[in-house]
Structure formats: structure tokens, C-alpha cells
């Protein structure tokens, strides 16, 4: 092909491309618009409105809105319950990371170990994830109940009567009882993610390790774990973000009590907004939740990027 032909071909091509681009633009808009509009109205618009509402003293019922500027945030910083709730949220983040993920991983590994009755184990291990949080909450209220609760009955049966207590009725134990329940609910989800990744690991890798005489632990440490790392990181992100916005179980089981000892940002926000009808103040709590989640996400992403850079 000689040069002049090439040039003319190029001009033809760019002409076609321009026309195509126009057509594409409308297609792009048409395809994205339905999702974007719904997402825009319910999520993006709402975040801005939350910030707007957070600058008012407002019950939400009447039209009487008093502009306060950032006064709600000043009040929030001096609000002891809010600090307790942040503390509990971060406790939940840490506890979730160090219970849900390891237990999920252990369960996933058990499903690949040479034991019989695999179908039964697998079926039962996953069940908690399918139950509604409200149902789990109500069920565990009775498990933790002080007089006839299942947990106390089990403790009694194995001779640990001294540990029996009203688990969610006491400030010192309530938050741990709830955290254990959250773990019970979500460990199965991570098990599924880990299991799916382990299934994808080529059998040859293990065969090669067997030839080299690697022990079970060595196989895990040098083959399974490194290949699981990306999904462990993803799971950690999901777990952290999920813990920061956690609500359902606490609301059903303790309502933030006793004496705010299990209060989370989300339960406190709900209480202020829909029980006390402080829509303005409640909005300042929920906007703070957004900011905290945003900061944590940015940190995770930056950490992830530098980790990838190191590899």
C-alpha cells in the first residue's frame, strides 16, 4: 500500500469514526441513563441533601426549619454517646476482621480436607448467611437469655455455671455477644468466597508440592495462602465497610442498650432521627458516617495500591 492511499484511507476512516462517535454517544447515554437516574436520585442526590438537612434544627414533621450552619457538628463533637458509638463501630471493625475472616477461611479449608460427610458440613456451614438479620437477632435474644437461654444451658451442661450471665442485658458482655452473632452470620459468606478461590487453584501445584515432600502446612503457606491473598484483601474491605455501617442486628437485639453500651453510629442516627425526631441532628450523624466511611475507603485503596506497587 503506498503512502497517498494510506492518507486517503485515514481521512475516510476518521470521517466514518466521527459519524460513529455521534451514534455511539447517544447509545452510551441511552444505555447508562436508566441506572444512572435511579442511582443519582436515590443515592447521590440524597447524600447532598443529608448534608443540607444537617445544617438545620428540624423535626421533619413540620415545615419549621431553623438554619444553624455547622452547629449540629459542634454539638456532635461534644456528644459522649456519639463517641461511644464510633468506638463501638471500630471495635466491630477489628473484631469482624479477626473473627469472620479466619473462621471463614478455616471453614473453607475444612471443606477441602479429607473428611466424610462433606455435604452435611457444607450445607450447614452456609445456612446462617441465608437467614434474615431480624430473624437471627430474635433467635439470639433467646440464645443469650439469662434464665433459660441456650448458651447458659450449654455452659451449665459442661460444668461452667460460673460463666452464666444475662449476656445482652449487661453492659460488659452485650457488645461481645452481638459481635459473636455478627460473626456467626457473616463467616459463611467469606467461606463461600474463599472456597470458590481454592477450587480454582490448579491441582498440579499441589502435585508438584507433594513430589517435593511438602507437609500440609507448607502446602497451605506457600501455595494456598498466597493465591488467596487477593480475595482475602477484598473480603477485608467488604468486612470493614460492612462493619462501619452495621445496624440491623444491634437494633433488633439491644436497640443500642443497655445504657448505650452497644450503640453504633447507625443506631444512634436512627434513634435521633426517627425516635426523637431530630432530623437535622440525625442528618449530621449520618453525614459523619459517610465521611468516616469515605476516609477509611480512601486509606484502604491507597494501602492496596502501594501493596500492588511493591509486588
Amino acid at each position: 500500500m503506498n503512502r497517498s492511499q494510506e492518507v486517503s484511507l485515514d481521512t475516510v476512516r476518521s470521517g466514518v469514526r466521527k459519524k460513529k462517535k455521534n451514534k455511539d454517544t447517544w447509545a452510551i447515554i441511552g444505555f447508562i441513563a436508566p441506572a444512572f437516574i435511579i442511582y443519582g436520585v436515590y443515592v447521590i442526590y440524597s447524600i447532598f441533601m443529608t448534608f443540607y438537612y444537617s445544617m438545620f434544627d428540624w423535626t421533619g414533621i413540620d415545615a419549621n426549619m431553623v438554619f444553624l450552619g455547622l452547629e449540629n457538628y459542634v454539638r456532635l463533637f461534644q456528644d459522649g454517646v456519639f463517641w461511644t458509638s464510633i468506638q463501638n463501630n471500630f471495635l466491630l471493625v477489628i473484631a469482624s476482621l479477626f473473627t469472620q475472616l479466619p473462621i471463614g477461611l478455616i471453614m473453607a479449608l475444612l471443606l477441602f480436607s479429607p473428611i466424610k460427610g462433606m455435604r452435611l458440613f457444607r450445607s450447614v456451614y452456609f445456612m446462617p448467611f441465608l437467614m434474615s438479620t431480624v430473624a437471627i437477632g430474635i433467635l439470639f435474644i433467646f440464645i443469650y437469655e439469662g434464665n433459660y437461654g441456650l448458651l447458659n444451658a450449654v455452659l451449665g451442661a459442661i460444668g461452667l455455671e460460673s460463666l452464666q450471665t444475662a449476656w445482652i442485658g449487661k453492659e460488659s458482655t452485650a457488645i461481645w455477644a452481638v459481635i459473636a452473632t455478627v460473626c456467626w452470620q457473616f463467616a459463611p459468606f467469606y467461606m463461600i468466597l474463599f472456597r470458590a478461590t481454592i477450587v480454582g487453584i490448579p491441582e498440579e501445584l499441589y502435585e508438584a508440592a507433594d513430589i517435593d515432600g511438602a507437609s500440609g502446612w507448607q502446602r497451605f503457606k506457600s501455595i494456598t495462602l498466597p493465591l488467596l491473598m487477593p480475595i482475602i484483601i477484598t473480603s477485608a474491605i467488604l468486612s470493614v465497610i460492612g462493619s462501619l455501617k452495621y445496624f440491623d442486628l444491634i437494633y433488633v437485639m439491644t436497640g443500642g442498650g443497655p445504657n448505650n453500651s452497644t450503640e453504633l453510629m447507625a443506631t444512634y442516627m436512627y434513634k435521633q432521627t426517627f425516635t426523637n425526631f431530630n432530623m437535622g441532628y440525625g442528618s449530621s450523624i449520618s453525614f459523619s458516617m459517610f465521611i468516616i466511611a469515605l476516609i477509611v475507603t480512601v486509606f484502604i485503596l491507597l494501602g492496596d495500591r502501594s501493596r500492588r506497587g511493591n509486588e
Binding site: Y42, V43, Y45, S46, I47, M49, T50, Y53, G60, I241, L244, K245, F247, M265, A266, M269, Y270, T273, M279, G282, S283, S286, F287, M289, F290, A293, L294, T297
Partner: peptide, 10 residues
């Protein structure tokens, strides 16, 4: 990552 509660009032 957006908490549902941030959008609840609006």
C-alpha cells in the same frame, strides 16, 4: 461503601 443511613432521611 456508602452507608444506607446517609441517604435515609432524604
Amino acid at each position: 461503601m456508602i452507608p444506607i443511613h446517609t441517604t435515609l432521611v432524604p
